[in-house]
């Protein structure tokens, strides 16, 4: 199990113990974290699991990948250097304590 901390735009924190191997989107949906929709089920194809990786964690998660993830983020709201699609972040032991901040609203 790996701890992932999801912080809503209003500051509310959801601390989730996620099983390794699933994505940060799936972990959020499983634990009913509000504000992560994941309409496409994890194909990087809807951009409704947009998150900001805490800068301290960015080196470990890596930035958004070339291809569909970057393309879809192009059309999301308020995209920053730390933006990722949570469905493309795999939960692993090296991410224990990962902090993901949520945008105002998924679009």
């Amino acid at each position: 199990m790996t701890v992932v901390r999801y912080i809503e735009a209003n500051g509310t924190e959801h601390r989730v113990e996620a099983e390794n191997g699933i994505s940060a989107m799936e972990a959020a949906v499983k634990h009913s974290v509000p504000g992560i929709d994941g309409d496409c089920g994890g194909a990087a194809a809807c951009a409704t699991c947009h998150v900001y990786v805490d800068p301290e964690w960015l080196a470990r998660t890596g930035p958004a990948a070339d291809g569909l993830e970057k393309s879809m983020l192009e059309f999301a709201e308020d995209v920053r250097e730390t933006s990722r699609l949570a469905c493309q972040i795999e939960v692993t032991g090296k991410l224990d304590g990962l902090v993901l901040r949520l945008p105002d609203r998924q679009h």
Binding site: C40, T48, S71
Partner: peptide, 14 residues
């Protein structure tokens, strides 16, 4: 999961 449907398409033309 009611939003898992294809009516809006997926990908860059969603």
């Amino acid at each position: 999961r009611p939003r898992q449907h294809l009516s809006f398409g997926f990908g860059i033309h969603r």
